[in-house]
Design a binder for these strands. Structure first.
Lengths: 165, 165
DNA sequence: CTCAGGTCGGTGATATGTCAACAGCGCCGG
DNA sequence: CCGGCGCTGTTGACATATCACCGACCTGAG
């Protein structure tokens, strides 16, 4: 047991900025998305991979992987969206344990209406604030942090389906 | 109205990494903190500024500024912590509208027990993954993003009280 | 075959966050 | 002095997230 090495001002600043920038960015995006389209960030997060998949259908497990959520959270969210007519559930033919989630016409219209402004918001709040080189640096640093984290129960996104925008 | 400029693979990667790294980092820290000390991240976030303030007391408004939370969330969280004996509420002498939050002995012991490992976790998951120069680059980039975001209702932390560690 | 152990998805209870509304108080112009 | 307006904090209803658990199913060893 050695003495604890507390964070100095420089280190605390990084930690503080990391959390504040994420919190504020997400809050700004969520506010804008909801007021423009009536979709929550969670709605959008699920509708996006669905809308870009082959027939607008994904197995629940794969949908979960693409957004990095726990299964129960995903199930609850799908139930709420089902109630609002954005998606429907179907049985999985190849594996009777599984279930499929299909985007409805209403859901497709909703995300197609919401997407342009949402992408524009991500650009103006994040991408446009950085040069191309800075974007690449930031990506590399964040990926390095991500790689060092312990894996959780759920499956981390495998990158096969970009999970937003 | 021009054509929407969708995100290309490089841009989507940044956006994806930004959210995934934050989500996974916070999840890892929260799990470790809770299993080691029984404190949630929210508990810790409030106990820290309290424990480092003059007499273990802060006005609710200032506590809110230091963590960047909305007033109602703060009030609910304080109520829960009060119920568990981590803090107490007091009246504010200088302004009868206000209220003060004071850390109890139990609360102080709890955060003092939790802090060393939590700081170590932040180091091993975030700081130690980057060189000193990379840390400074990351801080600068995140701060630039933060500065470009629209201000919200609540007060953004003014930096006078580092909000964690 | 058959059973053990893992996977998959869903459920209800609980914890937490958000929203709208309110009450009490300070500040300041008239 | 007082009346409007903004600030402060709380509350209850609601939305969302998490947790423990279950039931159904798949898979493979024996």
């Amino acid at each position: 047991m050695t003495e604890t090495r507390w964070l100095d001002a420089r280190e605390a600043h990084l930690w503080q900025s990391y959390r504040a920038s994420y919190r504020e960015l997400l809050a700004a995006l969520e506010t804008r998305l909801t007021s423009n389209s009536g979709l929550s960030g969670a709605d959008y997060a699920l509708l996006h991979p669905l809308s870009t998949s082959d027939c607008g259908v994904l197995r629940t497990r794969d949908l979960g992987k693409s957004v990095g959520w726990e299964r129960s959270r995903l199930s609850h969210q799908v139930s709420r969206m089902e109630k609002r007519g954005l998606v429907t559930r179907e049985e999985c033919e190849s594996d009777a344990r599984g279930s499929m989630v299909r985007i409805t016409e209403l859901g497709r219209k909703a995300i197609e209406a919401a997407a342009p402004d949402h992408v524009e918001a991500v650009r103006s709040y994040l991408l446009d604030r950085l040069t191309r080189e800075e974007q690449d640096v930031l990506t590399a640093l964040l990926d390095r942090v991500l790689d060092g984290l312990p894996a959780r129960d759920l499956c981390r996104g495998d990158g096969s389906i970009p999970s937003d925008c």
